[in-house]
Design a protein around this nucleic acid. Sequence first.
DNA 1: TAAAATTGTCATCTG
DNA 2: AGCAGATGACAATTT
Length: 586
Amino acid sequence: MMEIELPKVHPSQQDIDLIDILWRQDIDLGAGREVFDISYRQKEVQLQRQKELEEEKRQQIVREQEKALLAQLQLDEETGEFVPRSTPTNNALTQANTAPAEITQNVAFTEEDGDAMSFDECMQLLAETFPLVEPAAAAPPCLDPSIPPCTDSTHLMMPGEIPMLTQNPLLPGPMDQTWMDLQHCMNIQEILDMSGYVNTAQPSNIPESNYSQYLPKLSDVTTGTADMCPPAYMNTYDGGYSNVNQMSLKTPDINESFVTDEFCDMFYPDLEAKVNSASLPCEGGNTDGQLDELPNTPLLKPMDLHSLSPGQFSTEKTKDMAEFPDSDSGLSLDASPKSSSPGKSLHGDGSGGFSDSDMDEMESGPGSMESDYADMFPLLFLSDGPQQSLSEKSGITLVQDDTDKQPKTEQAEASGYSKPPFTKDKQKKRSEARLSRDEERARALQIPFDVELIINMPVDDFNEMMAKHQLNEAQLALVRDIRRRGKNKVAAQNCRKRKMENIMGLEYELDSLKEEKDRLMKEKSKNSSSLKEMKQQLSSLYLEVFSMLTDEQGKPYSPNDYSLQQTSDGSVFLVPRVKKTLAKSN
DNA sequence: TAAAATTGTCATCTG
DNA sequence: AGCAGATGACAATTT
């Protein structure tokens, strides 16, 4: 393990590493290091080491349980994503902070820097830098001004991954905690070794290469350490970070594993979860290759936008874009066959001629988590391409370039372009989730505009923007498709809303008509009964009047023979029925 | 896991 | 004729 005691006669570091590797390979077989170097390993040392191993495993289990608990507690049931349990104000920041978090995860331990620091200097630096962590709101801006500043490092999170411990991993804890972290990292080392993810034939690279497995590719990092510095840490440490990083890499006078591993644990508090996730495809574990790939890892793209020289968009660059979708977590995606296959880098020339099906094929791959990046950097990612370069070089600016220091979505919202006319909250979330399709397509073709901007900006502005930026056929087609789809989506939503409103209106009208019908039926019934009563009254009155009539001899007239009839002037006559019937027959 | 509900997308119609 | 929006129909996705 890494805490092996140094031999009295110092062998070369490479020898030590080689012994370490060989021993780790055989430790499961019960072989101690004395198998390789008897004079070097005493039995007591081995027993102690095994004891430590057990302790480490126990610690690891405990930590896993803690993490699992945290993960459970922080699962956003609505979105299905892991979000930090936070105060309402933090919730608002979570989304924006996710992006720096991604970058934060990618501290490059492998970048060599010739400057070495003494242990005292390191400790002093720690003392100076850690107190700066708490007031995150006062963190200095990122290198890239367009990246939202990290405001709460405790809530930085990879989308969809197990959340970090709520405790700030950068805060200096008690020595016990530090030691636990160290042990934890050693466990990771062991797991990696046993699972074959590390090419043990490269002993000299082990400390870096292990972590490089989990480091996203840094494709655009072509400069020195300063350029590789993740913005989140630039925020946090304000320049101190690079020194820290150097310290973690080159500290010859102290136990190298201590420094590296401890920083590993501080910077990768959730690394264990990744290791244990068992979703670590690996391309033969060639650590050299991984190291070589490090300068090509694209995760720091947003930060590095401005560090790119305009002429840097070579085929290698576009290849990076092609590989980018798989670099999201820096873990399993890196080695996915799809992304690693050169034939899949369809958009190598930046135009590519994608069909939607092509894009769907791409996005359905294991790298589809890239949409998270699109969510985090709605336009930053889209801006990171030849078009951006073109606009910078030619002086052409985006519509919102004058406010380039804001996230593009904010600009879009500020300009009133980005707001769909009809979205409920829940629908909005789902809509945002689905939006990633076109965002991914746009990013794949390096469309330098935000999808929402494309959709929601007025047609005149849209045409103007299209005219300003020389897009190729595929890009143009995609942009128009995105706009058409987006417009149609909103139209469909409005249509459905209208349809529902119409249905509801018709239902209301139907209810009203039913009520009216009931009312009229009741009225009819009432009138009918009233008429019946009146008829009865009339009949009674008729008989009463008839009974009062007598002939000359005082005999009453029979109602069967006579009837009473009234003329228009009100006069009443007694008319014989016989005559009447005779007249009718005539 | 099936079914219903919701949402996205395409083709077509309409103003 | 061309365009944007409306809408039916179907597919994809979510509940």
